[in-house]
């Protein structure tokens, strides 16, 4: 295995490890906290700043190492070269691509004109919808719901 591959593999392992640690912390804290609440302590908090701080502290060395490796990788230009190469589709897929282009070419200027007309009609409709929305109070709905955020709607709880 070349040095580059080892570097990329270690970095991948670090990323997975950091994610795994955070996922395990989140799931474990949630399960333990929920069980504690169910056991007659409904006013106790499941997550606290201290617990979150501890979890972040645990992954901090890994994050620093990963960030350091990322900087090294970017400066040295270490990357998965295969990701840059064109995908070798199967013959069927290449045919599909070529058929797609052929279809596009065959469509000709008439289809383009039809498309332009449809776009203009839909744009006019969009503007009419916006005016209708402003008049029926839909714009105010958007404003009110965006400045009075419901905690569950953003996943806070």
């Amino acid at each position: 295995m070349s040095k580059k591959k080892i570097f990329l593999t270690v970095q991948a392992f670090l990323c997975v490890l950091i994610t795994a640690v955070l996922v395990i912390f989140t799931v474990r804290t949630c399960m333990e906290g929920s069980a504690w609440q169910a056991a007659g302590h409904p006013s106790d908090w499941i997550f606290t700043r201290e617990k979150a701080g501890r979890a972040l502290l645990a992954v901090l060395p890994l994050c620093c190492l990963s960030a350091f490796m990322t900087i090294i990788g970017l400066v040295k230009g270490i990357k998965d070269e295969d990701a840059e190469k064109p995908v070798q589709h199967g013959p069927l897929a290449v045919q599909a691509v070529q058929a797609g282009f052929a279809k596009q070419a065959a469509a000709g200027p008439e289809k383009e004109e039809r498309r332009n007309l449809l776009r203009r009609i839909l744009m006019a409709a969009a503007i009419v919808f916006i005016i209708m929305g402003i008049l029926n109070g839909g714009m105010k709905d958007v404003l009110v719901k965006a400045i009075r955020v419901c905690t569950e709607c953003i996943g806070l709880g």
Binding site: M123, A125, A126, F129, G133, G138, D141, V142
Partner: peptide, 19 residues
């Protein structure tokens, strides 16, 4: 909220961005 008011405004905005 469509049971109360049709969401024309947002629909129009998204259509305009999309088009």
């Amino acid at each position: 909220y469509s049971g109360h008011r049709a969401g024309w405004y947002v629909l129009g905005m998204i259509m305009l961005f999309g088009l």
